[in-house]
Structure formats: structure tokens, C-alpha cells
């Protein structure tokens, strides 16, 4: 508030530049994750994956982008036109806005909010509207069913997700992601994934469900619902949905890496075993952890069959919710014991 005009402009310019850098990096990553996914799944199914465009098919994302941009943009006759056009943007904006509170480095963070975890949860709950409105505004039964299914899934998996994060917050005594990483580095085992193993597993499963990824990709179950809420979308708007999915995949991986695996810090026992690891730059450490989880997302997609809808719901409410509560109690006991 006490800023003079010049320093305010400078501050705005710096923030804008930071946003551009983060957005550029994440969009590049999202584009090449599609390529890596096709390549890895191809290898796992004894195929080659994309090979035609460029050397080893490296220009495939660019070709896909051009194809999406030049496709015809169809507005269905029975659709609610405005909502139909806004819905993918809502989903994408809620996915991208998460990046503002995530620290990539001890010193690089766009917005230093002291309630970072809650902001992520709030944006996740706002993103559900994009899905429901996309389903409803298409004016098609498959879309509506897919949208409602997806919303029910995301809503019911948000609760165990939040409760397992509550364990982390209780252990670190802070809502800020940066403080969580710092408290983690000073804790006994260096990572929260070991003392809070239950919470880690619950969070991992919920991360798959929140992003509508493979064993839980019911909203776009091709065999039952055609393509769920994406059925009526075509061209660039469909691309926006996929972009939002891949970006939220990255956000979930970042959250797991930051909250459970120590973020940019390495646990002391790992450094004691391999002293040369100390030379790694912090951002690279975080990136390696994130890439591991992205690979896990793809690996699971290639391996597991899809869940049935009632199995999915009963898994959330009957298994994951009690487990995350047990984890919370366990963290409280640990905290009471002074660990």
C-alpha cells in the first residue's frame, strides 16, 4: 500500500514476467507429456508410439495443436451457447490458478499466501463447476450423465484428499506450502511419506481420482458414455479440456512432491548415504520427483482396468475416508509424543 507509482509498476511487471515464465514452462511440459504418454504406453504395449512427425515423432504435439486449431468449431443446436463456451475456460483457469501458490524453489514463488493449501483446495472445488456446466450446457444425455458422474467423483474424493492434507498441516503447523517443505526437512525422517504412510497412499489415490485419470477415468468412459462431458466438444475447446487435465496432473504431482516427499530438499539419510546428491540444484530435485509421479500416472494408465462407478464411490466413502481419519489420529499421537 505504501508503494510509490514507479515501484508499483515495477512490481506488476516482475509479477507478470514470473507468470509468463511459469505458464510457458508448464504449457511446454503439458504438451510433451502427451507425447511421452503415447510413447511410454506404446512401449508398454510393444508398439513404437508416434514416429512420423520429426525425428522420433518429437514434433507430434505441434502437429496435434495445429490439427486442433484448424478443426471446425461446432456449437450444438440444443446447447446453452454462453455456458457451453465458458465451461472449458472455467476448468482451465481453475487448474492454472493453482500454480500461483506453488513454490518451485526456496526463493521462487509467485504469490506468497500463508494459506496455500486451502487455496489449492478451493480452486479444486471451483473447477467442478466447469465439468458440471460442460455436461449440462451440451444439451445431450451422455454429456449430462458424464458431467454428473465426474462431479460426484471429484466431490467425494476431495474429502479424503483434504483430510490427508490435514495430517501434513498438523505435522508442519502451517498452511503455507513453503513452510511445510521447511518443516519437513527438519523433521525426524526428512519426508512425511514415511511417518504418514497411510496419508500418502490416500493422497496418491485421491490425486488419480481428482484429475480424472486412468483407473478412475469414468467421466470419459469411452465404452459406456461415449466421452462423457467432452462428447459435444470439438476442435480447440476439446483441447482446452485435455490441457486442463494435464496441468492438473502436474499440480497434483507437485503437491505430492511438496507435501510428502520433501519438495526441493532431500532427507538427511539419503545425503548421508550418497553425499554427491547435495550438489543437485533444488529445482532439479523437485522436477525429478514430479517427473517420477508423472511417469507413475502414465504407468498406472497402461496397467490398471477401469473401476465401476459404485466401486469407486464405496472406495471413497468406506475405505479412504476412515483411512485418512486414522492417519489424522496417528499424526496427532505422533505430535503429542513430540516427534
Amino acid at each position: 500500500m505504501g508503494l510509490s507509482n514507479n515501484s508499483l509498476l515495477f512490481y506488476l511487471f516482475i509479477t507478470f514476467a514470473e507468470i509468463m515464465v511459469v505458464l510457458g514452462i508448464i504449457l511446454l511440459h503439458a504438451a510433451y507429456t502427451v507425447y511421452i504418454e503415447r510413447k511410454v504406453i506404446g512401449r508398454m504395449q510393444a508398439r513404437l508410439g508416434p514416429m512420423e512427425v520429426g525425428p522420433y515423432g518429437l514434433l507430434q504435439p505441434l502437429a496435434d495443436l495445429i490439427k486442433l486449431l484448424f478443426k471446425e468449431d461446432i456449437l450444438p443446436r440444443d446447447s446453452h451457447k454462453t455456458l457451453f463456451q465458458i465451461a472449458p475456460l472455467v476448468l482451465l483457469a481453475c487448474a492454472i490458478a493453482n500454480l500461483s501458490v506453488i513454490p518451485f524453489n526456496p526463493s521462487f514463488l509467485i504469490a506468497d499466501v500463508n494459506l496455500g493449501v486451502l487455496v489449492v483446495l478451493a480452486l479444486a472445488s471451483l473447477g467442478v463447476y466447469g465439468i458440471i456446466l460442460a455436461g449440462y450446457s451440451s444439451g445431450s444425455k451422455y454429456s449430462l450423465l458424464g458431467g454428473l458422474r465426474s462431479a460426484a467423483q471429484v466431490l467425494s474424493y476431495e474429502i479424503p484428499l483434504g483430510l490427508s492434507l490435514a495430517g501434513v498441516i498438523l505435522a508442519a503447523e502451517s498452511f503455507s506450502l513453503k513452510d511445510i517443505v521447511e518443516a519437513q526437512a527438519q523433521s525426524l525422517l526428512g519426508v512425511y511419506a514415511l511417518p504418514q504412510f497411510l496419508g500418502f497412499i490416500v493422497f496418491l489415490i485421491c490425486a488419480f481420482a481428482e484429475t480424472n485419470r486412468a483407473p478412475f477415468d469414468l467421466p470419459e468412459a469411452e465404452s459406456e458414455l461415449v466421452a462423457g462431458y467432452i462428447t459435444e466438444y470439438s476442435g480447440f475447446r476439446m483441447g482446452l479440456f485435455f490441457l486442463a487435465e494435464y496441468i492438473s496432473m502436474y499440480i497434483m504431482s507437485l503437491l505430492i512432491a511438496l507435501c510428502y516427499l520433501g519438495g526441493w530438499s532431500l532427507p538427511w539419510w539419503l545425503i548421508a548415504l550418497f553425499p554427491f546428491l547435495q550438489a543437485l540444484p533444488p529445482t532439479l530435485v523437485l522436477a525429478l520427483k514430479v517427473y517420477f509421479f508423472i511417469f507413475l500416472f502414465i504407468w498406472v494408465r497402461a496397467t490398471f482396468p477401469r473401476y465401476r462407478f459404485d466401486q469407486l464411490m464405496s472406495m471413497s466413502w468406506k475405505i479412504l475416508l476412515p483411512l485418512s481419519l486414522i492417519n489424522f489420529m496417528w499424526v496427532a499421537i505422533l505430535k503429542r509424543g513430540g516427534l
Binding site: L115, L118, A122, S125, L126, E158
Partner: peptide, 11 residues
């Protein structure tokens, strides 16, 4: 503010 968005808008 966070609870307002999570509880009202989200639930």
C-alpha cells in the same frame, strides 16, 4: 475466505 469458497461454492 478460504472456507467461504470451499464450503459455500464447493459443497
Amino acid at each position: 475466505a478460504a472456507i467461504q469458497v470451499i464450503v459455500y461454492a464447493g459443497a
